[in-house]
Design a protein around this nucleic acid. Structure first.
Length: 376
RNA sequence: GGGGAGAUACCAAAGUGGCCAACUGGGGCAGACUGUAAAUCUGCUGGCGUACGCCUUCGUAGGUUCGAAUCCUGCUCUCCCCA
């Protein structure tokens, strides 16, 4: 994998760049649709590619390990072949699931014991087997196994958690170095900076990780309950430490406004379930603000979903019709909303990139933030 | 014409003297959702008020009672069976 920093922009730390993988190029800043179980929920790959213009998608180690299992994925020749997606894939390590599974898991030095949310069966993730599983999946970018510290953790817990993540990180990289890709193309491994909402921990983690011979760096454990301003502050703190010549990935973030604020602070990569999950639940993000398409006020609005939208659904379907689909429980509603939202997120980062390259990012961002955060 | 059953909020449907402004479901109206245990979850749904509360409701008109959606009487309407 190669990363080329193409441009920065005045008054801002925003960057435009290119990541070159064996499955093609990724232009940053980029938003990566989440396809946890090998599917971006409700969206066909054809639409993901042609309409949404996704350049890379996510998969999830935890979910794919439970179903269909690494055996089937290996037989298929890796996840790309299994799902029919020939562009880059990034897999999350399962650290977040260990966090969100709550009381059906237990964390020890060795790793995380957990019960399947599907059938209750008992399993264990270790830094080593999480790398092995991601080798079987064949992700272009693999993530280190971390503990995603809750946003409200106290200092002593956050410290212990960060130290554990750090020890796990060394084990991840050790395993990474002693294994190789199963499918003939390169796989990268990104470490994850933890440290909760404590600046000194974030700085320490960032410093340690900066010494690593890695191809990109992720910031994790944010947007998990802390205030948005705190999240922005943590991004700044970390990005001040980590090297400029590697892509920076802010995990699990966020709203359109979050994306612009984070890009402004030097983040290159994002993933989030919001465009699909909230889309399925009737929330439509647009250039002019946020629409709850289920609201009565759209029932006779026969104008296009979004006049200036980039996806085909935007100009082809009216708001009134989309509301009708949601009211009626038709699956087409959530599908169209997901396509629209993803296309909007991809447009947003693409436009940000353009503005960075032209040197106008800051001004454009200020204008957009005021617009896209509004409730319509 | 004779016999029987019933009328409860937007719809369906409980409730058969006080704990009833009225169970529950649907529908409707809002809200939540950030490395997806989520096409999920939550709240509201007679009026006014943030709230203690006040006012108007259980076909309709009266009555009994300290108190009625619930008991009694008249009326109106609906459904079923027999002719």
């Amino acid at each position: 994998m190669k990363f080329e920093l193409q441009s920065t922009t005045p008054l801002s730390k925003a960057r435009a760049g290119k990541i070159l993988t064996d499955h093609g190029e990724i232009q940053t800043p980029i938003f990566m649709p989440v396809g946890t179980i090998g599917s971006v929920k409700g969206v066909q790959f054809k639409d993901l590619k042609d309409d949404i213009k996704a350049q890379i998608i996510l998969g999830n180690t935890y979910h794919l390990y439970l179903r269909p299992g690494t055996g089937i994925i290996e037989q298929a020749g890796g996840l790309h072949k299994f799902i029919g997606w020939d562009k880059p894939i990034l897999t999350d390590s399962g650290g977040f699931q260990v966090f969100s599974l709550g009381d059906i898991r237990k964390i020890t030095e060795e790793g995380a014991k957990f019960q399947s949310h599907i059938d209750g069966s008992r399993h264990m993730f270790t830094p080593e087997n999480v790398i092995d599983i991601q080798r079987s999946i064949g992700a272009d970018i693999m993530m280190a196994f971390d503990e995603c510290t809750p946003g409200d953790a106290d200092y002593s817990y956050a410290l212990k958690s960060y130290e554990l993540t750090q020890r796990w990180l060394e084990r991840c990289f050790a395993r990474y170095r002693e294994t190789e890709s199963k499918y003939g193309y390169h796989q990268s491994l990104f470490p994850i900076v933890q440290g909760c909402v404590y600046k000194d921990l974030r700085i320490k983690a960032a410093e340690k990780i900066s010494e690593l011979d890695c191809e990109g760096i992720a910031i994790g454990g944010l947007s998990v309950g802390e205030e948005e301003q705190v999240m922005y502050e943590m991004i700044e703190v970390v990005n001040n430490v980590i090297p400029e010549n590697k892509p920076r990935y802010l995990m699990g973030v966020g709203t359109p406004v979050n994306l612009l604020e984070a890009i402004d602070r030097g983040v290159d990569m994002f993933d989030c379930v919001l465009p699909t999950r909230n889309g399925r639940n009737g929330m439509i993000y647009t250039r002019n603000g946020i629409i709850n398409i289920k609201n009565n006020k759209w029932s006779t609005d026969f104008s296009p979903l979004e006049e200036e939208g980039t996806s085909q659904v935007d100009t082809h379907y009216s708001r009134a019709y989309l509301r009708h689909l949601f009211q009626s429980g038709e699956m087409l509603g959530p599908q169209l909303a997901s396509i629209h939202n993803l296309a909007f997120f991809l447009w947003l980062v693409g436009e940000a990139r353009k503005q960075i390259l032209e040197g106008n990012f800051r001004k454009w961002k200020e204008k957009m933030v005021a617009q896209i955060g509004k409730r319509l």
